[in-house]
Each structure stands twice: as structure tokens, then as C-alpha cells.
Design a protein around this nucleic acid. Structure first.
Lengths: 140, 140
DNA sequence: TGCAGTTTTAGAATTATTCTAATCTACTTG
DNA sequence: CAAGTAGATTAGAATAATTCTAAAACTGCA
């Protein structure tokens, strides 16, 4: 498990992108690598762009935005909106919720399997449930 | 109940602003009136600005932003962040949660007194709980 | 290999929001 | 009630995050 490939392209990631309907271009594979070949993480467009640059992966900011949106649409990422003006993208797409440390903008996942939510009202007429997000806001 | 004053200034609102540490200026009172002298509601800076203009209350957009932020800081409003790029302000500052209709950006409150959330993990070390937000995302 | 359709990109454009610094106004004091 | 002053408002510039545009560069099939 988790044997991280070095120099050469990662066939697993290419396949994963392809089966999501996305051509495995150099930049998409590079971004996918930093996103998925390690522990779950949260990024912003800016932070991912900076990381790519630091790793000597030439990717424009526009492409980072495009890629994050495409990955989100393909279900490879989940967008988390907790604070005005910035979007986080979470590589954990499974069921889970979030701690948000308001004082410093940190975001942490926690599993939802031990969490029970009872007594929710029925969705408004004509709508169907998409997801229930729980955001636990804390301060330092 | 709900006898809404017409032309003249509303002493209740002025007092409410004052006790929140805010001078009851013409623009703050006008905005407070559209916000608080009716049912609970959700506004954005733009929507409130448009509403003020329609009601012939000359208030600059900058003042609308300032006022919304001040009201929020004073606990008169609650800011709700559910979608990237826009902030909603909710005149309901009591305990409640939200339905968010993703397909058309609508936001609806629901009371939290029937909702039970069990099994939440303890807040991260060094942090204290501020609030638990539940956002039920639905689509049309 | 050639080519058509994608993708990437730099930079301009857009959107939401905050800042600036000049003008005005609410409240205190005399 | 007249001033003076701190605080508020404003237009417009500035900033920040994100999307758009149109041109150049790729990808993958034929």
C-alpha cells in the first residue's frame, strides 16, 4: 500500500482521471499527484498553486481553478465552504463533517459514522436531499 | 402585535442600536427597519442595498456592507456562509439551522429544538466550541 | 504522422468586498 | 442652543477570489 512513485508518470492516477472523463494531461496528473498520493487534505486554489510551483510543476493559476472545479464535478474532490471569500477543497469525498477553527482558518475532518442527527424536518416541497453538512465552529 | 410605525423614527430601533453600541444614524435606522420590522429574513449586501434604494432610502453600498458587519458583530444578525462568493445575513439570531436549495440559492431556516446531534467528537486541543451549524443541502 | 478537438495559459474581466480620505452628522460640553 | 469632535457616510479606488477570452500547445485517434 501507498508505494509512492517517483519520477515517472503514475498509471493509476492517469486511469483514475480517464475514468472520470478527464484527459490525463501533464498538469492534471501533477495536481492529482499532490492531491491524492498522500493523506487526505484540504487545499485552496492558491495553496495548491503555490505547492505546484514549489514542486517545479509549471501550472497556471487558471488551470488550478479549472482542475479543482473539474475534480469536484467528477466527484474526486469535495468543496467545503465555511468562510466568506475562500473555498476549500477536500480530498476526502466520503461521509464526514468538519471542525472549523474560526480564529485561524483551519479545517479538520471528522468521521460521520459515530454522529447521529435526529429530528431533521422534511426537505421543502419539490426538493430532494443532497447532503447534510455539519460544521462545528470552534475558536482558540 | 406587529404594529408597524409609518413615517416617523422608531424609538425601539434607535434604542436597540444604541444598546448595541451603535449610533442610530439615519442609514442604520433605515436598514434596521427593513431588516427587523417584519418576519425573519435573509439578505445579501446587494439585495439589501437594492431594497433600500427601492424604498427611497439613500444608502451607499459601502454603508450597507459596514452596517451588515456591525450588526453581525453586535449579534443583531448572523452571517451564513453556504455557497462560495456570497454571504447571507440572517435576522434570526436564535438557535436554528438551514436548508440550502443549491439549484437556486435559496436559504430557509428551521428550528433546532427538535434536532438532536449525538456523537460529535471533542473539539481539537486548545479550542472551545463556538457553534454547531447544520446545513441541509437539497436540490430541485 | 496529421489533425480535430481539448487543454493550457497569460492576462483581461467580473464579482464580492474592503479601503481611503474627504465630507457630513450625532452627541457632548459650555 | 452653538460648537467641537469623534464617529459615520460616501464615491470611488483598491483588493481578492475567481472566471473568461482568445491564442498557442497538447492529446489521442485515424
Amino acid at each position: 500500500m501507498g508505494h509512492i512513485m517517483s519520477g515517472t508518470t503514475s498509471p493509476d492516477l492517469a486511469a483514475r482521471l480517464r475514468s472520470a472523463g478527464l484527459r490525463p494531461t501533464r498538469q492534471r496528473v501533477a495536481l492529482a499527484r499532490t492531491l491524492f498520493e498522500r493523506e487526505h487534505r484540504h487545499v485552496t486554489a492558491e495553496s495548491l498553486h503555490a505547492e505546484a510551483k514549489a514542486a517545479r510543476n509549471q501550472v497556471s493559476l487558471a488551470t488550478v481553478y479549472n482542475t479543482l472545479n473539474q475534480f469536484r464535478d467528477a466527484g474526486l474532490l469535495r468543496e467545503v465552504v465555511v468562510a466568506p471569500g475562500r473555498s476549500y477543497f477536500d480530498t476526502n469525498t466520503g461521509h464526514h463533517h468538519h471542525f472549523y477553527v474560526e480564529t485561524d482558518g483551519e479545517l479538520h475532518d471528522f468521521p460521520s459514522d459515530k454522529v447521529t442527527i435526529a429530528g431533521l424536518p422534511a426537505p421543502p416541497k419539490g426538493t430532494k436531499l443532497a447532503r447534510v453538512d455539519v460544521i462545528v465552529r470552534v475558536r482558540r
